[in-house]
Design a protein around this nucleic acid. Sequence first.
DNA 1: CGCTTCTTTGAATTTCGTCAAAAGGCGTGG
DNA 2: CCACGCCTTTTGACGAAATTCAAAGAAGCG
Lengths: 235, 235
Amino acid sequence: MAGDIVIAPTDIAALELFRGLPPTALGDAAALARARHFARETRIFSQGDDGVRAHAVIAGGVRISQAGSDGGQIVVRFIAPGEMFGAVALFTNGRYPADAVTLAATREASWSEADLHELMSRYPQVAINMIRVIGRRLQEVQDRLREASTQRAAQRVARAVLRLAQQAGHDTSDGTAIGFPLRRRDVADISGTTLYTASRFLTTWEKRGLLVSRNRHLVLCRASEIQQIAEDAPD
Amino acid sequence: MAGDIVIAPTDIAALELFRGLPPTALGDAAALARARHFARETRIFSQGDDGVRAHAVIAGGVRISQAGSDGGQIVVRFIAPGEMFGAVALFTNGRYPADAVTLAATREASWSEADLHELMSRYPQVAINMIRVIGRRLQEVQDRLREASTQRAAQRVARAVLRLAQQAGHDTSDGTAIGFPLRRRDVADISGTTLYTASRFLTTWEKRGLLVSRNRHLVLCRASEIQQIAEDAPD
DNA sequence: CGCTTCTTTGAATTTCGTCAAAAGGCGTGG
DNA sequence: CCACGCCTTTTGACGAAATTCAAAGAAGCG
């Protein structure tokens, strides 16, 4: 299920956490990293686990989801290549606050708490990068919170797919394709709505030619019209 | 409206951002700080402003609220004494992402971007503290996002007042009083519901004796029963 | 004492979640 | 290669929760 693999310094250089660091720092980071490979739909860690490490996706994708004491769950975030995950818990209470499950076959690297602190004290830029990454995510989650409280389901679903395209989209002949597979359930859980409501909107939009959904992969054909829906009220 | 005032190192020592620092560091921080005093309902900064500084409340309270392109707005957070605010923008895009307005007469301190970076490079613990603070807030906002998406209005309002009591509550003869004044509108905006819905629940609970609302100050009398409402479904 | 702001309460409307069931797609194993 | 089964998606009907609109009452402030 989880196989150890080698990791190249060029992989490390592509991570947001180590942006702008000198080659020696990248070498240090690579030397301290534990690299692994996971199959699709494999759990990397679970909510409540201790032994927290700082993770980053090299290739593939990860779904970070959070379940409440009641049944309800949301997708906190999807992690695309280059992004880190699970690291905030190192600085708060030492337990993962959410589940991490691969969306597809995935390569990841991770660092222990001690090693990350070592890297941060040796290269303060790592701490600065981390503040920037967490800060951006804080602002993004705050935006989503505002949307969840003030906007309707159609707008939230539209914004969610736009954000995903921004985060992990690559251009194809017929539009912007989102880099990892998403079920309707995933779209619902990141939009803050139900499977049924998300399905209704996506199907409607597909019939209008705004997007295409093929084999759990979304392709946005007319992003500007989806943007319209995100801003206006209509369904 | 805004008057400059002196600031004592003991005030600095009480700030979450400078926790665990040696006295010399506190002195440096105090020397670089700009301290000011604001009357009630005064705007400290506005969404979109540049010239970002890192702020902290010494005494009083601040409402951080965010408005979308549509009319809708939410309260992102209330800032109690000792807490920082407005600092994340220093590491992201250099513009305040929200409005900051005083809830009551308030003393605050603030640092320029250059001075904060200076303090961080001289005392790395400041950067670590900042990561911890932002990390905690990220987790808190994620919790609220999950609640907004999966729980009903009654539960969200109940959780909001419990969180506020936790954050800024002090015990009195008849229960836990929240340290700053809150209108129904404020409670609604932080619960992700409307003024009317929030009012209905609060008056219902007040009639049941779970809490008291006097002159815009909330006092939680039976926190355990409010906790019940937050966990169960009933109104 | 009058004005403004805040709060309460009622009634109608709407959105969205819930439940149920059928149809589709994909991979696996025979 | 086909058939079977499981997972995913679609679609309809219903109901409940909460927003919206309206208006009156209460409270603080000058």
